[in-house]
Write a protein that binds this DNA or RNA. Structure first.
Length: 597
RNA sequence: GCGCCCGUAGCUCAGUCGGAUAGAGCAUCAGAUUCCUAAUCUGGGGGCCACAGGUUCGAAUCCUGUCGGGCGCACCA
C-alpha cells in the first residue's frame, strides 16, 4: 500500500507554518516589491501612495489567475499612460519563476498566470495546516469585545433573538480565526422596569404554588408558563413568608431570583445553538459599583452632561408630555439629533445612562468594540456611538466601535406566516425551532443573507434536502468527500500528495477556487460579515459537485480510477483537502461537517 | 416631520478597497442515471442594477436629490 497522507511527516514547526503566507498575500507583496523597485529607479515618484493597488483573481477566469490594477492607479503619478507603465511592471514581474505569463489587458490591467506547481503547493499547504488553513494574523492579537444576544432576562429566547445570536457568535469565531483575541459578552439588563414586572409575575406564580387561586394573569404581567417552576422554587425556598407582605419586602429579592432563573434558562437555550459567552455583565452590579455615577461625574467635568429640558418629540402627539429638567448628555456634539437623558425624573438611571457606563467598562479591557443589535434599536445607535466617542476619545483617538444591526426574521411555514402573540405568551421559542430543524440548519440559514437585509425563515424550506437548501448542499459536499475516501480505503487506496503532477486543468481550477479561502476570511473579518464564509462554501461545494459529475459520463474522471493508483491517490488528496476546507469554513459558522447523510 | 436600513433577472439573493462583457439558486425550456451518494450536473432564454444628476481613466458600488418598502423617533428597553 502506498504511504498514507495521514502518516506523512508533519511540518517541524507548526506555529511557523500557520503564519505561512497564502498565495494571494504572498503575491500581493511581490507586486508591492516591484513597485518599490520602480520607485527606487525613478519610474514612479518617491513616496507614491499605493493604497489603491489591488491584486485579486479576475472575475473572468479566462483572464488569468490574478490581476492587478497597479498600472491604472499609478499612471497619472508616473506621468505616463497605464499601458506603458504596465509594460514596465510586467518586465519585473516576469522575472519571477512562478509567473508563467503576464500580459496587459483592457485599459491597463495586468493579468498573470502562476505555475501549476505554485497551486499544487497551496494544496499541500491545506493538508499541512489542516484546521489552521485560512487562519490569519491580520488582527495582530488585538482584543475585540463582541457583545451579542443581551436579551432581557424576562423569558426564554425566542426567534427574534436568534439571528443576532448566530451572527454575533460566527463573527466572534471569525475574528478569532483572523488573529484577534475575542471577548464574547452578554449584557444582562437585570435592573430595568421590565424586571420589576418579571418579579411581580413570579410573585403571582409563587402564590399559585402555595395553593392560592390566582385566576387569569392580569394585563401587564408576563403570562408565560415558564414562570410556574420559578414560583414553585420560590415557594420551596421561602414557604409563605412573602405571600401577604407588601411588595417593598420581596421585590428586590424576587427580581434577583427570577432574573437569575431566566438567565439559567437563556444559557440553556443558547447552549442548544452552541453559543457560550465568556462574560455576562449585570446591570445591577454595574450600578452597585457606582459606574454610572463615575461616568456622570467625569462627563460633567468636561461639560458633556448638563441639566436641561427635552423638547417634545415631533411628528407624534403625546397627551401626557410635560417638560422636565433632567441630566442630559451632549450627544449632539457627536452627531446625534438630540441630547439624551442619563437619569429619569425619579433619580434612577435610564437604560442609556447605564449603557454608557457599561460601554466605558468594556473599553477598558479591549482594543475595539462590536455590538450586535436588533434593527428595532437602530434609533439609539447614534447616542451610544456618541457616548463611546466622548468617553474614550479624551486622550487621543476614541476606541474603534461598531454597532451591527441585524434585521428581523419572518417565520413562515410553507409560505404562510407563523402567528405569534406576545400578549398571550405564545411566541415561537428558539428551543422549539432548534428542536424541530436542528442547530446546524438554524445557524447556517441565519448566515445565508447579509445581516442588514430582512429574511424569511420557512420551516418547510430549511429542512429540504435539495439544491435550493444551502445547508444540505454544503454538508453533502463534505459527506461525499468522506464516503469516497472511506470507499477508496476499503480498496486499499488512500489520499496521497506523493505525485500531484498527474492532476489536470479541472483539478487545478478547483484548487484555485479553494485557495481563495484565506482572503475570503480576511475580507469577511475586516467587513465584520460572517455570511461571506457561507457564500464561499456554497461556491466551493458547487465547484466540487461539478467536478464530481465529470465522472458520471467519463469513468476516467472519477476520484477512484480503476487501474490508476497514482491518479486516484492524487485526486483523493484533492478531495480530502476540499473536505478540510468545508470543515474549516463550517467550523467558523458553528456548523458540523457531517460524515455521511 | 426627522433618523437608520433596504431597492440588482418572473421569485429569493450575492456582488471584495470603484475595475474588464453585472453573477448564483429557484422557476422555465432542452439534456445526462449500467455512476465513487443523480440529495448531483450540463446547456438555453431571461437585466434601464428603482429614477435623475454629479465625482473620474472607469460607478450596481462613492456624493446629492426624488420615488418605493421596512424599522425607529418617551424619562420604555
Amino acid at each position: 500500500m502506498r504511504s498514507l497522507f495521514l502518516n506523512a511527516p508533519k511540518p517541524a514547526n507548526r506555529a511557523a507554518m500557520s503564519q505561512m503566507q497564502t498565495i494571494h498575500a504572498a503575491f500581493t507583496q511581490k507586486v508591492d516589491a516591484v513597485l518599490a523597485a520602480l520607485e527606487a529607479e525613478g519610474t514612479l515618484p518617491p513616496d507614491c501612495p499605493r493604497g489603491n493597488v489591488t491584486v485579486e483573481p479576475p472575475r473572468d477566469p479566462s483572464h488569468g489567475d490574478l490581476a492587478t490594477n497597479a498600472a491604472m492607479v499609478l499612471a497619472k503619478q508616473a506621468k505616463t499612460n497605464p499601458r506603458e507603465l504596465a509594460g514596465k511592471i510586467i518586465e519585473k514581474l516576469s522575472a519571477d519563476p512562478i509567473v508563467t505569463s503576464a500580459e496587459i489587458a483592457g485599459p491597463g490591467f495586468i493579468n498573470l498566470r502562476l505555475s501549476d506547481e505554485t497551486w499544487l503547493a497551496e494544496l499541500r499547504a491545506i493538508a499541512d495546516l489542516g484546521a489552521d488553513y485560512g487562519k490569519s494574523a491580520m488582527g495582530g492579537g488585538k482584543t475585540v469585545n463582541v457583545e451579542y444576544v443581551s436579551a432581557n432576562p424576562t423569558g426564554p429566547m425566542h426567534m427574534g433573538h436568534c439571528r443576532g445570536a448566530v451572527v454575533g457568535d460566527a463573527l466572534a469565531s471569525l475574528l478569532e480565526f483572523s488573529g484577534h483575541k475575542v471577548i464574547r459578552e452578554y449584557y444582562v439588563n437585570d435592573a430595568g422596569a421590565q424586571v420589576d414586572v418579571l418579579a411581580r409575575s413570579a410573585h403571582l406564580r409563587y402564590r399559585e404554588a402555595l395553593g392560592e387561586d390566582i385566576g387569569a394573569i392580569p394585563e401587564g404581567l408576563y403570562p408565560g408558563d415558564y414562570l410556574v417552576p420559578v414560583g414553585k422554587a420560590l415557594a420551596d425556598e421561602f414557604g409563605d413568608s412573602y405571600a401577604g407582605t407588601p411588595e417593598s419586602e420581596w421585590l428586590s429579592l424576587f427580581k434577583a431570583r427570577a432574573s437569575g432563573a431566566m438567565m439559567d434558562m437563556i444559557r440553556d437555550d443558547l447552549a442548544l445553538l452552541g453559543i457560550c459567552h465568556d462574560v455576562f455583565s449585570s446591570e445591577v452590579e454595574l450600578q452597585a459599583a457606582g459606574k454610572p455615577e463615575k461616568a456622570e461625574e467625569w462627563l460633567r467635568s468636561k461639560d458633556l452632561v448638563y441639566d436641561g429640558m427635552l423638547e417634545a418629540p415631533k411628528g407624534k402627539t403625546l397627551d401626557d408630555w410635560e417638560p422636565v429638567e433632567l441630566p442630559l448628555f451632549r450627544s449632539t456634539r457627536f452627531g446625534d439629533d438630540q441630547d439624551r437623558p442619563i437619569k429619569k425624573s425619579d433619580g434612577s438611571w435610564t437604560y442609556f445612562g447605564a449603557d454608557l457606563a457599561y460601554h466605558f467598562q468594556k473599553s477598558q479591557d479591549a482594543d475595539a468594540l462590536v455590538d450586535i443589535w436588533g434593527a428595532d434599536h437602530s434609533g439609539t445607535v447614534k447616542r451610544i456611538k456618541a457616548a463611546v466617542a466622548a468617553m474614550t476619545g479624551d486622550a487621543g483617538s476614541p476606541i474603534p466601535f461598531e454597532v451591527k444591526l441585524v434585521q428581523m426574521v419572518q417565520l413562515l411555514r410553507g409560505g404562510e406566516p407563523v402567528k405569534m402573540s406576545k400578549r398571550s405568551g405564545t411566541f415561537v421559542t428558539l428551543a422549539d425551532v432548534v428542536r424541530e430543524v436542528g442547530k446546524d440548519v438554524v445557524r447556517f440559514t441565519m448566515l445565508t443573507r447579509k445581516p442588514e437585509a430582512q429574511m424569511d425563515f420557512d420551516f418547510a424550506k430549511v429542512v429540504e434536502t435539495s439544491r435550493d437548501n444551502p445547508v444540505f448542499y454544503v454538508q453533502y459536499c463534505h459527506a461525499r468527500v468522506r464516503s469516497t475516501i472511506r470507499k477508496a480505503e476499503a480498496e486499499g487506496i488512500a489520499p496521497s500528495p506523493e505525485d500531484l503532477s498527474v492532476l489536470g486543468p479541472e483539478e487545478l481550477e478547483l484548487i484555485k477556487l479553494a485557495a481563495q479561502f484565506p482572503r475570503i476570511v480576511e475580507a469577511a473579518s475586516a467587513a465584520r460579515e460572517p455570511h461571506r464564509i457561507a457564500f464561499f462554501l456554497q461556491e466551493l461545494a458547487a465547484g466540487f459537485h461539478a467536478y464530481w459529475n465529470l465522472g458520471n459520463d467519463r469513468p476516467e474522471k472519477r476520484f477512484i480510477v480503476v487501474n490508476n493508483v497514482n491518479l486516484s491517490c492524487a485526486r483523493l488528496f484533492l478531495a480530502a483537502q476540499i473536505g478540510q476546507l468545508v470543515t474549516n469554513g463550517l467550523a467558523l459558522l458553528g456548523v458540523v461537517a457531517v460524515e455521511e447523510m
